[in-house]
Design a protein around this nucleic acid. Sequence first.
DNA 1: AACTGTGGCCAGTAGA
DNA 2: TCTACTGGCCACAGTT
Length: 778
Amino acid sequence: MKCRFFLLDINEDRSAAKPTVRLWGLNDRGERVLILATQILPYFYYMPDEKDDPDSVRERLLKPGTKFTKILRIEIEKKKKLLGLPCNVLRITCSDSEVLTAYARDILKDLGKGTTYEEDLRLSVRYVTDTELTLCGWQEFEVEPIQDDRFAVDSVFAAEALPAKSPEDTPPAMRILAFSLLTVGERGSAKPEMDPIRAIAVATGKGKVEILLNEGKDDSQLLTDFVAFTREFDPDIIVGFESNSLVWPYIIQRCKLRKIKLALGRDGSEPHTSMFGHVSVAGRADVDLFDITVGIAEIKVNNIENLARYLQTPSSGKAETIEESDRFILWKDESGRRKLAENAKANAQIMLELAEAAINFPMQLSALTGLPLDQVMTAAVGFRVDSYLIKQAHMLAELIPPRVEQPFFTYRGAIVLEPKTGLHDNVVALDFSSMYPSLMEKYNLSPDTLVRPAEKVSEDSVFIIPEVNHRFRKQPNGFYRTVLKELIEQRNRIKGEVTKLEEKSTRYRVLRERERAVKIITNACYGYAGWAGARWYAREVAESAAALGRDTITKTIAKADSLGLKVIYGDTDSIFVTDDHKKVEQLVKWAKQEVDLEIKREREYVRILFTEAMKRYAGLVPDGSLDIVGLEVVRGDWSDIAREVQEQVLTRILCEQSTEKAIEDVRTTIRKLKNGEVPIINLTIRKTLTKQIEDYKVRTPHVEVAKLLVKQGWDLGVGDKVAYVIVKGSGKLFQKARPASQVNPKDIDIEYYLDNQIKPAAMRILERFGVNETQLAV
DNA sequence: AACTGTGGCCAGTAGA
DNA sequence: TCTACTGGCCACAGTT
């Protein structure tokens, strides 16, 4: 029988007698389905030395009595390519996916030469590439129902054949469970070894939120209730916040302690940490909203409130994170406990809304890259590109290079122009559209087209890259050219389709996110090519793209000059010029004709201000808002008070062109600070721990405060933000830093905030207008 | 002991 | 994923 099937998760069935892939998802009747597929067997490639005859190598490996008892068959493939060149390889198929790496190693040792490929691809990856199926997408399967009550699904099927693509492309309705833990630690953060879970809030739909309470003497019953609730509701997607790093580890540890089986998987298994540090729940997609906030550059502090504000979901205003230290105080009495419970419920409800609003992008990224939904947001950019390229390479019959430790070389990057300082009226920022990918495609930059220095080729058969003198063959198309062409075309196709759709329709939203996913992968290819961990790493490719970029922008500046356009600033692929429409049009035309690249009018500025610094400016755009780049206002490591005062100054200068009003604003802020009217939260400075506390070579305020908090029982590590303020006293700054939550307002070092926060932030702008610091005195 | 200059550590941003 | 850039602050050396 036929089964139309939306694939949500894929993994290998390690308990099966023969290599089996489990495909979890929904059918077109909204039933939960598991398909067991045995069509794709594990295999790897062996490429013999040139002098060796593939047939005799084959004979030798298949001879009875060798240790390779799990080799099922060996085929000679003549169509495979390595770096674009055809080659003969042995495809060695095995009956057990566990033996691939060992066999590859042993064959190399036994034969003493040749190379192996693709033994590092897991069976589920093999299945995705070989069948070209789409994660978070629809396919059609020919299946036979089977009886197997190990799985909590509506039907289990055995696949009879490989899947076929289905035209349908909007996801089915899925059940989403959002959950939030309530934990309370007496000293510092709650510790799973000692602090039981007090409650778990679970949201399953609009207004459908409840709280599971811990009413026993420990949390055994609560954990059991949580398992029962989850199994009963049977979600397709489970959503948490910091669930991978904190919440799941906490629950898992509590269950271990209380000896409770956390059987949440659709196969009855427990959640476990898997690839890229994400937590995997068999048959369901575990999505951590934290990973989604990390992916949104506009969000400085990654919490639920900020994600809610950014996505503007219905209950976004109700989100609130209660600090751990406050939780302990609230927990002491009944009304506080009620407040905590309400907060956990509100958070779960909001997380559900956020998941519904934000899930399209991860789904589209999953479909594009072939990484399962629960891994795709946790995976670093490089691994997303890697996964995408593996799929593409397979389709092009290219052998997939292994990931190897490579020596690392830096190279010269982009050009940034010295800005013309001061105020400028009527300016336009011109950007090249996807400059690096376009250049990589145009000049066929790829590891397989790169001509090694010793190699002799005729000059007109290669592109010679300016400055760096690397050579790339014009033909045939390199791997990156093929892939980027397809990506760029795909993006244009989607863009064309989107314009025909109604903005509110589901398909519109899906396609918009698909376009975003394609854009992200396209832009990441340049950085990926220069990443030593990449399978398709070639420093020369990234270096050449950067050199061509410099060449392009330099020529563009010269052209703008010759047209009489005043170039005020430029960074990488953009130039800021005085907006003379006719001349700008000429420049755009020139770019199209002479360098075959598209220049877009990216932003217009009524007025724009540059200081001496590169990458820092502020402009007034026609709708009256400010576009602030690089300055303290947009930095997360300055206090609110400094950021706010700088924003006021910029508004006065750019909108009203009044230095006097700006000065008065600064004075007002200074007065407030001196009168003690500024709350601690506006004086708090936040910095991230980018390494283990003991690895720091210098003593800095945020590290010192982190050490203090650790001593108090807090659990702080890489990636945690430390919030501190500076208090009165003597000595170095790091000796005067205190945790923001533990400071009395009267201890604040007013002078520090004046001299090191407010004044520098304000003067950065005001000194351009001849203002002296003494004029700020009150 | 207090100050000054300088190199380097560090976090964060801009642009892809 | 990459490089370019800013600017605070520490650590240390040399000077007053």
